[in-house]
Design a protein around this nucleic acid. Structure first.
Lengths: 195, 195
DNA sequence: GGTGTGAGTGAGTGCATACTCACACCTGTC
DNA sequence: GACAGGTGTGAGTATGCACTCACTCACACC
């Protein structure tokens, strides 16, 4: 009836589907882990058949790598935006770093990025491709922080260390805990955090 | 023939076997992950049948929890020993904390404890029992550091943060990397590290 | 030497999961 | 309107894995 045009076509392009698959993959792999997530779940979440999923990503490992890369990109983009915004408001040096830290805290509110990172860290030692992707992520973040915040190595180390602690505390549910040790550890990282 | 005594009996006690299973479990689960390790592998490594493994630990989750707890105990014992040794040599306060940090660096040389922790962090959010075990571990470590090194909350946070960064760097193979960012990040944590 | 209990196993069962194959349907192009 | 190639799927297959069952053997005690 309606003449199919670019906007009314019923089929998606493979590229659009791949995009949807990554988004879906991030969500379900965050919850169940990279190895723990069945490809069928990813396919369902993306709204396609499992068979087509394997046409788009020939192996589960290929899919996992795409997901991990997207995770890194998202963190990088968040930091970039935070730095730009801080600078636009006249901030320099440590204030920019601080803004990046704040943005990380907000970023992991939705758990997806947080969990994905944990799974990624755990998978890295036995999966060279994931390990390489993680190295890429850190390399880019390091360069970004150096360039945008002009931080020295000591500050950058602090920044990353705090971020890793935040991840761990979140993983063990320390932020919801009522005990003194948890509250003390959770309080401190207000000053500077990372990826 | 030979009168069977406590030392010549051919059967082990269940308790001895459970011990062997935990040791074996730590090794193989460190390499393949908690979920990624088949129970058959643990049984083989412990030198018993899979059927008997399930008599000793009724479910795989029970086994995993025992392994995680042992992991925590081992870290705690290492810190305790390091503190005692440092104090015997006349150290106090920050020097004791420093000694604990050093001992952590040595402890994770063999990868087993390091990898186990990463897997544990990743598994915690979806496995309440593992999450609880992690909380226990941190609670005990926090108390130990406070008592033995008399560190304030800021120092303890630093200590833990640095330890988490060490774990992450080790996971992504940064210690074997030749690039500037990796070398800078890996260098810094010489001052203080944790669990 | 008989007997009760705990140590120990070979051989399954049933289900979940990564990946495949043959086939149907859209859609742009001439 | 036909045909080439891209989008999409239902129904598999093969393997791996948690967990079970029926059974044997060692040992301590009488």
């Amino acid at each position: 009836m309606v003449p199919p045009t670019a906007t009314t076509r019923t089929l998606s392009t493979a590229e659009e589907r791949r995009e949807a698959v990554i988004e879906a993959g991030m969500k379900v792999m965050a919850e169940r882990g990279i190895h723990g997530t069945p490809t069928l779940e990813v396919a369902k979440a993306a709204g396609i058949s499992q068979a087509y999923l394997f046409r788009l990503y020939p192996t589960k490992a290929d899919l996992a790598i795409a997901v991990v890369r997207r995770c890194n990109e998202r963190i990088h983009a968040t930091f970039t935006a935070a730095a730009a915004q801080a600078k636009a408001a006249g901030a320099t040096g440590e204030d920019v770093l601080h803004a990046m830290g704040e943005s990380y805290g907000e970023l992991i509110q939705d758990r997806t990025l947080l969990l994905l990172q944990l799974h990624c860290h755990a998978a890295a030692p036995s999966e060279p491709a994931i390990q390489a992707a993680m190295q890429d992520g850190f390399r880019n973040l390091y360069a970004l922080i150096k360039a945008e915040a002009g931080a020295d190595d000591e500050e950058i180390s602090q920044f990353f260390a705090t971020g890793m602690l935040i991840n761990t505390l979140a993983a063990m549910g320390a932020y919801e805990l009522d005990e003194p040790w948890a509250q003390k550890l959770c309080l401190m990282p207000k000053s500077d955090d990372p990826a």
